[in-house]
Structures are given as structure tokens and as C-alpha cells.
Amino acid sequence: MTDSEAALTEGAPRPVDDLTFREALAELESIVAVLESNTLELEESLASYERGVVLLGSLQKRLASAEQQVEVLMGELAAAPDDAARDTTLS
């Protein structure tokens, strides 16, 4: 049993911010599987769905942040024009 699966079966799950991206994704996948199995009572389903929404929101924020970091890094890789090649028509 993984940590994320253990969190689902034990008392209170770990705070989402304490999970790695991989752990959060694994827990979300586990929640989806359980919800799709239709084996939970309504109250448990709602609690699991709520946890899934929180996990999904966190994962989306992390992906957006990573995407922004990649864009910044890619921008740094773009070669800045040297002084001799710079367009001076607006000067």
C-alpha cells in the first residue's frame, strides 16, 4: 500500500501541501478509482470527491507554476542581441 492509499484508509489524510506532486497525483487517481467503483456510501463519496477537488486544484497550480518556470528559463536561453546587431532605427 502506498502512502497516498494509506492516507485514504487511515484517519485524517495528510495535508495536500505536504504531498509531493507524484503523491498527490497517485492519491487523486486512487480517489477516482474508488469513486468509479461505486462502493462508497454517499457521505464517503462526497468526502472523497471534496478531497479530489482539493488535490486537483493543487496539482493544477503546481503545473501552472512549473510551466511559468519553464517559460522563464526558455526566455533566459534566448540569445540577447549584441550591441553591434541591435536595431537602432528607434533610437
Rank of each mutant, 00 (worst) to 15 (best):
L40F: 07
Q68I: 01
L77V: 00
S4P: 02
E44A: 14
E76K: 14
A84W: 06
A7Y: 08
N38M: 07
Q68G: 07
S65G: 07
L35G: 00
T39M: 10
L73P: 00
L63F: 07
A84F: 13
T39N: 13
S48Y: 15
K61A: 12
A66G: 01
E36V: 02
S58E: 05
V72Y: 13
Y49D: 04
V16R: 12
L40P: 02
S30C: 08
T39F: 12
N38A: 14
D83R: 09
T89E: 13
D87K: 08
D17G: 11
L59I: 03
A80E: 05
P13T: 04
V32M: 15
T89F: 12
L77C: 05
E71P: 02
V32Y: 14
T39Q: 14
S91L: 13
L55Y: 02
N38V: 01
P13M: 08
L28N: 07
L77D: 00
Y49N: 04
D83N: 09
Y49L: 09
S48M: 10
L40D: 02
A47G: 04
D87M: 07
L90K: 15
T39V: 10
A64E: 10
L19K: 05
S4T: 01
R86F: 06
T2F: 11
D83A: 10
P13N: 06
G57I: 03
S37D: 08
G75V: 00
A12L: 12
L8W: 05
S58W: 08
L40C: 07
A78N: 09
T9H: 14
M74K: 14
S45F: 07
L63K: 11
E27K: 05
L42G: 05
I31E: 05
D3G: 12
E71M: 12
L42A: 11
D17T: 05
D17C: 13
Q69D: 14
I31S: 10
S37A: 15
E29N: 12
S30N: 09
L25F: 15
D17R: 15
E43D: 09
A64W: 09
V32I: 15
V54L: 13
R62K: 12
E27F: 06
V16H: 13
E67R: 13
E27I: 00
T89Q: 14
T9W: 12
E43T: 03
D18R: 09
A24G: 02
G52V: 01
E27W: 04
P81N: 10
L90A: 14
S30R: 06
A33H: 06
G75N: 11
M74C: 04
R86H: 08
P15Q: 11
E36S: 15
D18M: 07
R62G: 02
